[in-house]
């Protein structure tokens, strides 16, 4: 047993990387749910983004184009969900589950012939001077660009929801779509845009796994990350900064668990594995502010 072999600085740094795909996907889903839509198809959109991003990167050699393609792929798939739930008024839970099934199948088909290929490397940004600062340097400043994109996304969403007029409208639509409609807002248009944004973010999250973390294409490689993203949105009670904390906690438990094991400390892995979910439920119960958007999951149809 040797706690000293765990380096807290490195632990925090690797936790930030581990949390990035879920931060990206969860940030998108947060906007979707804030608009009053529950899209359970995050896993399907992530894996679709993972393969479209991978194909684009391998074909063009540029990870940036790959990430763009992943966003387009995820958004494209989410449009299917948007069309069904917003125009054809299908049930969101069922459609979301179907979207995951569809996305897993689609990605595996698209990915045929891409197994075992290595993606071009995605260079890290080393910010001179700052990254040499002890402690904070390695934690904050020695990552690949997408880690910062994830953080920027959270800040952007926070600003958008809190200070922008469009964010206000989005929240109004999510809280009470009837009232928003009565005020003259285009509920469906806003929701479609939110859904596409969510799809694009999920696609980025998936591509982060296939282009940076692994980096290779294998069928089913998101391995449930989309479901964790869904859990984190709830854990965060639909607040951007709490989402960041939630993602780090989730990522942190996994990384810490492995760290403890490597340090030779016997821990019951299965109890640790379930702890984030129980924590999420507790947060849901305890936080009175953790109220879901009023219209979440409900079908909107403008009756005249």
């Amino acid at each position: 047993m040797d706690f000293s072999s765990i380096n807290p600085i490195l632990l925090l740094a690797s936790l930030m990387v581990a949390a990035t795909p879920i931060i990206l996907a969860a940030a998108g889903e947060l906007i979707v749910e804030r608009a009053g839509v529950l899209n359970l198809g995050v896993e399907g959109m992530m894996i679709t983004g993972a393969i479209t991003g991978f194909i684009a990167t391998v074909t063009t050699g540029s990870p940036w184009i790959g990430f763009a393609a992943a966003a387009v792929g995820g958004a494209g798939l989410s449009l299917l969900f948007g069309f069904l739930t917003q125009f054809l008024l299908s049930n969101q839970v069922a459609t979301g589950l179907a979207l995951t099934l569809f996305g897993l199948g689609l990605s595996a088909l698209l990915g045929q012939g891409y197994n075992g290929i290595k993606a071009p490397e995605f260079p890290k940004i080393d910010i001179p001077v700052i990254s040499d600062i002890p402690v904070l340097g390695p934690i904050l400043c020695s990552h690949d660009p997408m880690v910062y994109v994830g953080l920027g996304l959270i800040a952007g969403i926070w600003y958008f929801l809190k200070y922008s007029r469009a964010g206000l409208v989005l929240r109004a639509v999510g809280e009470n779509h009837e009232a928003a409609h009565a005020l003259g807002y285009h509920v469906i248009r806003i929701r479609i845009l939110a859904i596409m944004f969510g799809g694009a973010c999920a696609g980025l999250g998936g591509a982060y796994i296939s282009l940076v973390r692994v980096p290779q294409w294998t069928d089913g490689m998101t391995a449930g990350a989309g479901w964790i993203a869904l859990a984190i949105v709830v854990f965060a009670s639909w607040r951007p900064w709490r989402l960041l904390i939630g993602a780090y906690l989730f990522g942190g438990v996994t990384v810490l668990q492995l760290n403890l094991q490597a340090a030779g400390i016997a821990i019951p892995v299965e109890y640790l594995a379930m702890s984030p979910y129980i924590a999420t439920i507790l947060v849901l119960v305890l936080m009175s502010a953790g109220r879901a958007p009023g219209s979440l999951g409900k079908i909107f149809h403008a009756s005249r």
Binding site: L80, L84, L88, L89, S90, N91, A94, T95, L97, A98, L99, L101, F102, G103, L104, G105, L106, S107, A108, L109, Q112, D219, H301
Partner: peptide, 26 residues
Amino acid sequence: LPGAAIQLFQGMLLFFLLAVDVMTSY
């Protein structure tokens, strides 16, 4: 037929069922 094609096919079936369902009440 690859297993993935079957998954895709099931997903499609669900999508279409959900889509045409709108016709019953609208």
